[in-house]
Amino acid sequence: MPMNRQRDDALAHASAAASARTAKVAAHGVNVFYGDKQALFDVSLDMPDRAVTALIGPSGCGKSTFLRSINRMNDTIPGARVTGEIVLDGEDINDRSVDPVLLRARVGMVFQKPNPFPKSIFENVAYGPRIHGFATSKSELADIVESSLKRAGLWDEVSDRLHQPGTGLSGGQQQRLVIARAIAVSPEVILMDEPCSALDPIATAKIEELIDDLRSQYCIVIVTHSMAQAARVSQRTAFFHMGKLIEAGATDEVFTNPRDTRTQDYITGRFG
């Protein structure tokens, strides 16, 4: 048995190393400022494709700030400034040649509180493909909507009421609708900022199952305050504290054998 355990540990380490090498998104020395206040300090982190990277840490530690940097949502905040480099498939997303609108089609975002448009279920999902010109006919658009709702695990629940308001769905259904809306434009990366914090345990379990299904197709980065959720859904975990990345690695390793005492203290509930 010890030999088997050693072999399994070696395979896990090799897998984690391979994941780090095949980063879909990579941050190098990223600093974020809001006016004179610095919110992130010299953050470098690889986020692999077809895997979930969880960002954990106490409130105000910079997790959401870092997440918003990956699709330039910080651009919308007056006085915000980002230095360093964030690379998506080898391209610096902050380069002047990169159109933020097109970037956000490649890097979808799901927020803490479900935010469906005040439109029908169908129009919520069809909106992105329509404005980006992904569909050339009504039937093609309908196919994209159906496919997206199926991938979000929502089709069976809403197929007979596609023209009813998306805001009429339950909280968990609304969050899956928002995920369907995000994947309808064929993104490469999905960012999730506390996607389950406003949901009940049953809806949370459905979202976690969905995340597990989607990770085979996307690079997913999730901010969560729940240690149990990070352990359940992610393959890699990054611990932030006071605007700094303290450590990152394979999730099982970070949770069972953290290298930094601050990570250990946070995971065991000594602070946070």
Rank of each mutant, 00 (worst) to 15 (best):
120 S>N: 03
118 P>A: 09
208 E>W: 07
72 R>K: 09
214 L>A: 06
130 R>F: 13
105 A>V: 12
18 A>G: 09
104 R>C: 11
82 V>K: 04
39 A>V: 05
107 V>Q: 02
34 Y>R: 14
73 M>L: 15
231 A>Q: 15
103 L>E: 02
225 H>I: 06
3 M>C: 14
116 P>M: 01
87 V>P: 10
190 I>W: 00
270 R>T: 07
226 S>M: 03
43 V>F: 04
103 L>D: 02
205 A>K: 11
136 T>W: 07
113 K>E: 08
61 C>W: 01
66 F>Y: 08
89 D>N: 14
169 L>I: 09
28 H>P: 07
230 A>H: 04
198 A>F: 08
222 I>A: 05
115 N>Q: 12
211 I>A: 03
97 S>Q: 13
95 D>L: 06
107 V>T: 07
79 G>C: 06
251 T>L: 08
233 V>T: 05
61 C>E: 03
34 Y>I: 01
169 L>P: 00
174 Q>M: 12
110 V>F: 01
233 V>P: 03
63 K>I: 02
256 T>Y: 06
95 D>E: 14
54 A>V: 05
182 A>M: 06
197 S>Y: 02
182 A>E: 02
164 Q>K: 14
58 P>M: 11
185 V>D: 02
266 Y>G: 00
94 N>M: 05
88 L>N: 02
132 H>D: 07
200 D>N: 08
